[in-house]
């Protein structure tokens, strides 16, 4: 590459104009988007849809209204979408932290001890497939407070994937790493701290990533049933028959979900060190 003498042999051939895969995909993405918006606009103009369905241009206009001034506050039922998002994000973060603070240590414990693992397994197996929303009435009964109930539901939601992944990661550490620790005469505690936990870190973070994804799914449903946040906003705007606001909220919830997922993907690659690509 740095050798200039080698360059002329290749350079003079004019390269034909070609798009690579991601450039092609980007173009196709915009084509699909344009076709979709055009059909939507056309359908609304020709009154093919139900009257309640807004046009694409009206939706875009309202979308812009919501994101151009996200932090206004005119009372409990009239807040900017940024404030609503912050409420939901705060609940997800606190609930997720509580859930992870339970799931990671417990996962390590059951991953290290086959006895504890087998003893606790029936509880986990029965509780894990339960929809998080089934916990909501129980939360209300126990906490008598919608805010705490939201945290309770999110905490339980974000426990299971982290718990299972942590257990898997801790109990499946490559035996050659453990043999190294053994031949060096490392203590159990040192082996856990310096070998088992770093080796399990990619699995643990993968679990946290799934947990965060599910917590973000569940917060919208929980807030529809409780109050405040982006979920309640969606339900409120349905009661106001403002479909454009609902579509706006759906898009924004999706965008924030992607953002959270990317964040954990970064963390995942940071702890992986080439073990997994």
């Amino acid at each position: 590459m740095t050798n200039d003498l080698l360059q002329p042999a290749i350079a003079p051939q004019a390269k034909p104009f070609r798009l690579n895969t991601s450039q092609k995909a980007l173009i196709l993405f915009f084509v699909i988007l344009a076709v979709f918006l055009a059909l939507w606009e056309l359908g609304a103009a020709l009154k093919i849809f139900l009257p309640i369905m807004p046009s694409a241009s009206q939706t875009l206009k309202d979308f812009w209204f919501w994101i151009s001034d996200p932090f206004f506050d005119y009372g409990p039922n009239d807040k900017g979408i940024g404030l609503l998002l912050l409420t939901s994000l705060r609940r997800v973060m606190i609930g997720f932290l509580i859930g992870s603070a339970i799931a990671v240590p417990l996962g390590i414990l059951i991953g290290l001890s086959p006895v504890v693992s087998q003893a606790v397994d029936p509880f986990i197996q029965i509780l894990r497939p339960v929809s998080p929303l089934a916990w909501l009435p129980l939360g209300l009964a126990l906490m008598r407070d919608s805010e705490k109930t939201a945290l309770f539901v999110i905490a339980i939601t974000s426990t299971w994937p982290t718990l299972m992944n942590t257990k898997f990661g801790v109990s499946n550490v490559d035996s050659s790493y453990l043999n190294v620790a053994k031949t060096l005469g490392a203590s159990r505690w040192r082996t856990i701290r310096k070998v088992i936990l770093p080796a399990a870190a990619p699995s643990i973070v993968a679990g946290l990533r799934i947990s965060m994804g599910i917590a973000w799914l569940v917060i919208v449903a929980a807030e529809i049933l409780l109050s405040g946040g982006i979920g309640y906003f969606i339900w409120n705007e349905w009661n106001n028959l403002k479909i454009t606001s609902i579509i706006t909220a759906i898009l924004i919830v999706g965008l924030v979900g992607v953002l959270l997922d990317r964040l954990f993907a970064l963390l995942q690659s940071w702890v992986s060190f080439g073990q997994r690509s």
Binding site: S176, Y177, T183, G185, K194, P198, A199, Q275
Partner: peptide, 30 residues
């Protein structure tokens, strides 16, 4: 097992999250 016998493994068994120096330091420190 014990540190009076140093073992070289066929599959190297290096900790992938440690650098070269850290892998050796881990052994010395242990």
């Amino acid at each position: 097992p014990g540190p009076d016998r140093g073992v070289v493994f066929q599959n190297y068994a290096l900790m992938p999250w440690m650098t070269v120096a850290e892998n050796i330091r881990f052994a010395v420190e242990t």
